[in-house]
């Protein structure tokens, strides 16, 4: 069972019709940690959105186990973690509700992510980015999850939090055989956490 993008082309409609991604192919197997690097503006986030099934490619396909991903209904085995956790949680919901949205979370995950009980009753505006990102991770780690797409998930956090989050992710990925796609601008980080690093080819 693998996550595969084959000859994917994507661009937003508009005057110039410029393609952001052209003919991109990529595959990710369980247990693999693929690092992706590219200069800014080359469509790394867009690729993540395609792989997560948020967008449908203009041509080419994103297949999970041979099935087009955007057709998936219900809990998706591919989950994306966003760079800015404060946009990925509903500002009007208490975090406990956000966390349990898709079902109960294994208390062990909460413990290992250092999520404190008191945070559950708070609103997102009362927690720091690092604390919110822990919630996003816990929420994404459903029992059905097989792939995580990490788009610069620690770029806005301090180094200690970054190390904590990656340590947790690496352990969890190892234990559950998750496939990770890791986008980061930091070569040192990619080198540290990935099993394989690829450069995204230029779109145009």
């Amino acid at each position: 069972m693998s996550l595969e993008a084959s000859r994917v082309t994507f661009g937003y409609g508009g005057r110039k019709k410029q393609m952001i991604l052209q003919d991109i192919s990529l595959s990710l197997s369980p247990g693999e940690r693929l690092g992706l690097k590219a200069p800014s503006g080359r469509g790394k986030t867009t690729l993540c959105r395609l792989l997560a099934g948020y967008e449908k490619p203009l041509s080419g396909q994103v297949l999970l186990d041979g099935v087009p991903l955007y057709k998936w209904r219900g809990a998706c085995p591919v989950q994306m973690i966003w760079q800015h956790p404060e946009t990925a949680v509903d500002p009007l919901l208490r975090l406990g509700d956000t966390l349990r949205e898709a079902g109960p979370i294994d208390p062990k995950i909460l413990e290992r992510l250092h999520i404190e009980k008191a945070w559950m009753d708070r609103y997102p505006s009362e927690l720091s980015g690092g604390e919110l990102q822990r919630f996003c991770l816990a929420r994404a780690l459903q029992p059905t999850t097989e792939y995580l797409l990490c788009d610069e998930i620690t770029a806005m956090l301090d180094l200690v939090t970054q190390a904590q989050i990656w340590k947790f992710l690496l352990q969890t990925a190892e234990k559950r055989g998750l496939g990770l796609l890791i986008v980061s601008h930091s070569d040192a980080l990619l080198e540290r956490v990935c099993t394989r690093v690829e450069e995204l080819p230029e779109g145009m």
């Binding site: 720091s128 200690v160 904590q164 040192a188 540290r192």
Partner: peptide, 27 residues
């Protein structure tokens, strides 16, 4: 100790972690 922890947490310096999370300012 936090600055030292920052140093040790750099990906090139061991990527070591400490327990706990940084509290929200003012709490």
């Amino acid at each position: 100790p936090f600055t030292k922890a920052l140093w040790h947490a750099m990906p090139g310096h061991g990527f070591r972690t400490i327990a706990g999370a940084q509290p929200y300012p003012g709490t």
